[in-house]
Design a protein around this nucleic acid. Sequence first.
DNA 1: TATATTTACGAAACCGGTTTCGTAAAAAGG
DNA 2: CCTTTTTACGAAACCGGTTTCGTAAATATA
Lengths: 341, 341
Amino acid sequence: MSEVNIRWMAREMKLSISTISKALNDSHEISIETKRKVLELANQLHYTPNPYASSLRRKKSNTIAIVIPEVADSYFSLAINGIETVAMEKEYHVIVYLTHENAEREASILKDLSSGRVDGVLMSVSSETENFGPLKELHARKIPIVFFDRICEEIPTATVTTNDFESGYSAAKHLMDCGCKKITYLSISNQLSIINTRMEGYKKAIADEGNDMLLAEVVQCSNEAPNTKSMIRELLLQEDRPDGIIASVEKLATPVYENCHEIGIHIPNQLKMICFSNLTTATILNPPLTTITQPAFDMGKTAAEILFKALTKRNYILKDQHIVIPSELIIRTSAFIKVSA
Amino acid sequence: MSEVNIRWMAREMKLSISTISKALNDSHEISIETKRKVLELANQLHYTPNPYASSLRRKKSNTIAIVIPEVADSYFSLAINGIETVAMEKEYHVIVYLTHENAEREASILKDLSSGRVDGVLMSVSSETENFGPLKELHARKIPIVFFDRICEEIPTATVTTNDFESGYSAAKHLMDCGCKKITYLSISNQLSIINTRMEGYKKAIADEGNDMLLAEVVQCSNEAPNTKSMIRELLLQEDRPDGIIASVEKLATPVYENCHEIGIHIPNQLKMICFSNLTTATILNPPLTTITQPAFDMGKTAAEILFKALTKRNYILKDQHIVIPSELIIRTSAFIKVSA
DNA sequence: TATATTTACGAAACCGGTTTCGTAAAAAGG
DNA sequence: CCTTTTTACGAAACCGGTTTCGTAAATATA
């Protein structure tokens, strides 16, 4: 597109193409004086090298991909920020691919990525992915992959996660400490490692309590907002509705609250709730939402840093890297510890 | 990266490189039978063409850029969704660049983009941009640019905006209808067109009221969260604090609410508030937040559609395209119409 | 049957850089 | 002063596709 290229500059300066290229790349083969002149002309013309030409030759795109389900989600947008921070520093470009929790869409994205368009991939798998073929294919092409948050256990590569089991455990424990007798876990997928790990923690906590009054119940929510809301409504209209809810993902917070407001269930008096969430508005909700807050930014940043190590260091073993950054239980009003007076 | 290329396939099939290329591109020059065989081999080998090679030759990257201040913001994340929808359909790739409201960072991004890395740019300018040189440079390179939401008036190109003036007007009008006598407009920049347009609407509404009891006041907030919160606290601790607030951007909602909760100012009894926002949690805030909700998804989608027209249609005049999609005042509890009993 | 046209394919230039290799001239070493 | 090394640069191959152009064979037309 840019009409001015290296060839043109070479003619202009009566130098060879290779000299211009080397000068621009600060090669030691070129005299300081020549470099200065070339740089001067380049700046004057606002010359910017064609990235595709150099990517082609260097077999390096200086680009990484982020493959995530959704961007309108506090966790992922913060994670993107973390990733972007690192990428910007390394002068890498970031292509964002959204799967919208759709396995086919994800598959077609992964297929495209095996073209060499990107040097590495940061990914959080969709909740509906059952066939890991495309991921395996990508991995077989030796393109470095780092999973963050939602990992795929079948691919031996680096992962950055949070302490999902402990978080699920402590969420359930906290609700029990608050006096809950029937805690429902709102899931969104039964094949998503993190959702299940959180659920295992929740189940373990309840089992540890050893009290059969504590009924564990798991409800599968939909990926579509209207469905989700009505499923939750059904749950809350039941005779023996839960007195505690653990919402496995952020987007479940609004439908639960809305249903409660509409039906007239008081939080926390009649229902206590904890949500896995990074909402900045948690403090100003009605009532303020007790959350398990994930280190989203740090997870993104860490995942990116690991990826860049794989891209720069020789013989860096990605599959040995498994970083766990703990989440934090932030107690607010929607579930608070009973003060035993 | 991918070890299998067109050359390799050509040898394998005892055909020429050009025949393979043409077959893969479904050229009429190639017999149906040959195409079939080539496709078969390509599928079997999971062949994916090197995008940089073809971009180089075709002078077309099939990639667009989104340049925005921030991704952890409901408006922008929804807009990205809208853009992504269109891009996915057109089989385009989307590179996301975040400026973090930093003019220098924006400038360096724009400089890079003039390399031809992308075929077009969708942009919402940073609140701190004062020098439009880099943007003009990019525009001079004939790279199609479509501004959405935050436009740059000095660049004659397509814009997709919402009715900011009317929105500012109706926000102020609504607050006055609710009985507010002193309405403060919280700004974040005095060079950002939309913020100022909203402010003009707000000022006009107050002027129209013709009541000198209605004092208009504008407060410039910072781009850093802690500063913003303390600036707002100062405002709310004043003797003659406002009884109405119009927050020009979403991220101002939380600090205002938090300050009110902490100081003990009741919303809406002592302070009414309207926020320009796309928060999905608006309904479950304490109290539910009256918002001017922008058509974020549609704006992104529309901007992308316009960009693609520019990329495909010959002689499509970008600078004539100025789409305005109206925002909606959604009345909730934080500012409601007084029922004159 | 002779000529015109179409079909199906190959050779080679091309996109815009990068990199290898070769070399004249200058500088260093003996 | 002659040889060796270093410096500074140019020619050309190369990355992996795409596209133009040329052409033999097949088919259509006269």
